[in-house]
Amino acid sequence: MSKAYFDYAAKRLLQAIVVILLSYVFTFVVVSILPGDPITNVLNNPQNGFTPNEIKEIIAAQGLDKPIPVQLWSAFSGFVTGDLGLSMRTNRPVATLIAEVLPSTLVLASAGLAVALFLAAIIAYGTQFLPRRFGQGLLRGFPSLFLSVPNFVIGLVLIHLFGFQLGVFRVIEPDSFWATLFAAIALGIPISAQIAEVLIANLDHESGQDYAAVARGRGLGQMRLFVTHLLKPSSLPVITVVALTIGELLGGSLITETVFGRNGLGSLVQRSVSTQDLPVLQAVVSLAAVVFVVVNLIADLTYPLLDPRVKLLGGQERRPTTADDSSLPISKAVTR
């Protein structure tokens, strides 16, 4: 482990902490300066049936009568020490509310990621073995098709076909194995497209390199060439792409949970949105940002250890092939 790596790691760690803290402040500011405030929208709404005394209590407990910078400071210091505050609607600790639904979302998100990786691998590696004119074009067309289908439509089609027509799973039992699997497929398909696009681009790039031509010249078959030469260098950069899709995995499960009727973070967000329960929303967004930043930090820190071609120069990372400064697979495809 070189000094350059430690410099790089320290710099990335510091950056990650700054981004997490700033994203909390950012969310708070967005939620509080924009028009629409919870006192008039929720508490004074006769539909919710709060008595004037209760309203006063909630306002005092949440500190809604204080100026925004003061509110921000108390919420922010709470966040740093791990206190997420109380839910405005149920008056229970936000951390407890999140802890109740988190496992369901974690199961769905990890299953969705597994589906996405599996599909992406089949599509991208498949292009290496199908004949160029027949079949390959079809495989290469999948990512753009997958990117054009809203994931709630995939979910509804799966429910209609497998739930209602074929009876593989019962819609009223959303946590059963089959229901979870189909929810994961609905979540994973759009994400697989992004991973597959990068994977295909990397494979094309690597198989055009001199070393691949030399290997072909030595008489290596496509299978040997792929396994021994192309697989590793084209797949490693995907680690960073997968880390970047974490956000979409979380955002996508919000919709997928609604479609499949699962009780997870997504439905918590839905309930909190309809009641303008800002502390809960704030906490969920911050949690998502923390997860995203930490996963990307881990990816960025392990990547130089896995790929010997990466050179760390004065705390700056130099990545090989396509993974330069563009962040998302889409922008990558454009700027390349």
Binding site: E248, A288, S327
Partner: peptide, 9 residues
């Protein structure tokens, strides 16, 4: 910061 928050969220 904008990238860290899931787009849809």
């Amino acid at each position: 910061v904008l990238l860290a928050i899931p787009k849809f969220l």
